[in-house]
Design a protein around this nucleic acid. Structure first.
Lengths: 228, 228, 228, 228
DNA sequence: GATGAATGAGAATTCATTCAT
DNA sequence: TATGAATGAATTCTCATTCAT
């Protein structure tokens, strides 16, 4: 967090409200409210960014009074974290649900890459915000690295598997290679979807696939000819 | 009488000061002050981050009165931009000064990668801040993409050259491949030097070099065996 | 964390607060606060003048935190405008409530003049401030001209009426004459009550009445002899 | 002055410069500079108003360095006072140069009124500023009242003279009547030339003349028919 | 639990005036 | 004397969080 400085630190929050926050809302209406706030928050964060988002905006978007916000979340940071955690969780699940390991083919690798790209696209804005907020919140940094780790681990497993079945270069360190390939895919998506550099999607996914296969030393894979 | 009085009613900053800010200092002393402020700002930004930096901190670090800051810069944003522009300029120069094109060898490629890594390290903190600030200002986004472009262009030239001399795979689009390789190197440096993921430098540079060579389809290049 | 952070980069005041400022307070307590601030502001403005008044002074006088001020008003200008509008409204009402038209007599005209003078006196300080501030904002100019118009219109009606019943000189343009008579009364009150030029009130009102009657060409009116 | 508060009160100005300011510049070049600053100041004040005028703007308009300004004038207030004094002096001279007293005729009175209007027009902006600044500076209030006094005195003399020669109503107090007539003319010019209320000049001057003659009880004066 | 309002620390920026060359 | 630059007090306004109903 930029600065919690000016918090009236040491001033005790009314025990009652604090408790409610900790227990969380128990009624159905309470759950609905919480969800509404989360959704509203995601929308507002995506639209205005973290710093430009006011708690008041979130409350307004969720159509509740500002005070109500604090019945469900401790702070602006807290709700951002909740939004981020949900996005991160979603992505991790999506990445994990990749088909079981099999002999790599161009098509399978292409499809996997495309899945990552799709997943990234769905969450691009929030991912960028996580990155940004991560600069000042360690917790956010953690979430960010978790997503990365899920991705990289998946890639490392794949490489290791291809090495086992003799398709990939044995001399490569799967973990390290996965870090590099993961970085590449990640960053290119960021440059494309957040910074606005233009790419033709099909060409991009193809190129990523090729680089990924070649980088892992899978020379046997037949790469279909492209463009010219 | 330094009074802030009823401004906001049609604000119109004193032409004089505005002009100095635009034309730059006229005397030697002025130049020195400007430079001192820039240096101070870089130090403070690196230490505290963009948001946590106060104009007052920069002025204090430069040992001038706060008002003096505004003789030279419009705002915190403005001086950050100046710092960023300088760093970006430095990096672009460093990247551009790479040796003239020659047939790629593992050693040459390794050295070039190492040079990039070194350059990144020197400027890692500010680069991270540019990324962070870039999320909210277009000008910062521009600077960020400029550095990237310089890097990627260089890589594209290299690939094109290797294609011409028959070393690299002709079927690759040099620009697109360069984008990917550039993303990989860039991002891995970020993850390593800013996010704190640990890497063994030599292994990392080696792996980057190998992926880069393989990715470009330079199969002829002899890669020396490594660790194991 | 009340931090002023990196605003100015696309400022967008919290919708919530802005809305309250526009819609006005929703609760009884809110209305009371708003009124208290307005009263406090009038007192402080009258005492210190516009420029010397700080928002902090108004808040202190109203016994609220400075932040509370901004729950109800945008700025010092805004609250001054509200104060001015109220004063202007009051005066316009007072001027409008003059007795219905009747054949002019010295006594009736004297009484009407006296009423204007009394009204002016009650609001002299704020009227002076409106004039002062009017020099720099068009909105204030508008309010100022509105009061004047109310006064002048009233006078014009009276003149037209006296013309109809054959008391006033037919050849006069009622509107133009009213402008002149209104200017005279207005300005003399300003010189007397704000600039501190001394006048004997009874003599002044008498003289104004006489000039006003003569100026409108009402020769028939019997003017009682005075002092000497 | 709004606030001299923040003056480093008690801090002695370098004796040397202080002396220069008091002695005033002696060389021809010095005089020229002073005049240039005065002219520049008048232009800038007229264009931007007192508060919005920066010392820097005046210096820039006069094409001298900001520091030079203080060689010739003590402060922004001081130069405004100098500008105002010059304008006031000019107006007083112009008003005083009215033809010697003679029997009032419509034509002579019209001409005198027209002269006042012309004089006012030439100085309208600065007169408004004097009024405004007068709200916070007693010295300015004095200058403002001086101009008024010159005008009113002239009118009083005229009335007294017409009384002596039997043209004007003996029962009027010349001083008081002059105050009223002066207020009327003054204010109507202000409303017209500064506040932007529209008037047809010839009609206005005519109406002023008529009111002035009638107000002073000069019934014998033949007023030429007008418009309808 | 919900609401509307209250709080107040905190940082940016201006510009008249002074000062060192 | 002229110049360019230095100074710093002073005020505004924001918004996360808390609180009284």
């Amino acid at each position: 967090m930029p600065k919690t400085k000016s918090n009236r630190m040491g001033v005790a929050v009314s025990a009652e409200q604090q408790e409610r926050r900790e227990t969380g809302p128990l009624t159905g209406r309470g759950h609905a409210r919480r969800a509404a706030l989360l959704d509203a928050a995601r929308r507002v964060f995506e639209e205005r960014g973290f710093l430009e988002t006011r708690v008041a905006d979130i409350a307004a978007e969720a159509k509740v009074a500002q005070g109500t916000f604090y019945t469900y979340f401790d702070s602006k940071d807290a709700i951002f974290q909740a939004v981020a955690a949900r996005v991160a969780g979603d992505m991790i699940v999506e990445l994990g649900s990749n088909r079981p390991l099999a002999a790599a083919t161009y098509e399978r690798t292409y499809a996997a890459t495309q899945r990552f790209v799709d997943s990234y696209r769905r969450n691009a804005k929030i991912l960028a915000l996580i990155e940004q907020v991560g600069t000042f919140t360690p917790e956010m940094k953690r979430i960010r690295l978790q997503v990365r780790e899920a991705h990289v681990d998946r890639l490392a497993q794949a490489i290791a598997h291809q090495q086992e079945i003799g398709l990939a270069d044995d001399s490569l360190d799967p973990a390290l290679t996965a870090e590099l390939v993961g970085s590449m895919v990640d960053q290119v998506c960021h440059v494309w979807l957040n910074l606005g550099h233009e790419f033709d999607e099909a060409e991009l996914v193809h190129a990523l696939t090729v680089l990924w296969l070649r980088g892992a030393g899978m020379k046997e894979i037949v790469v279909p000819p492209r463009s010219g």
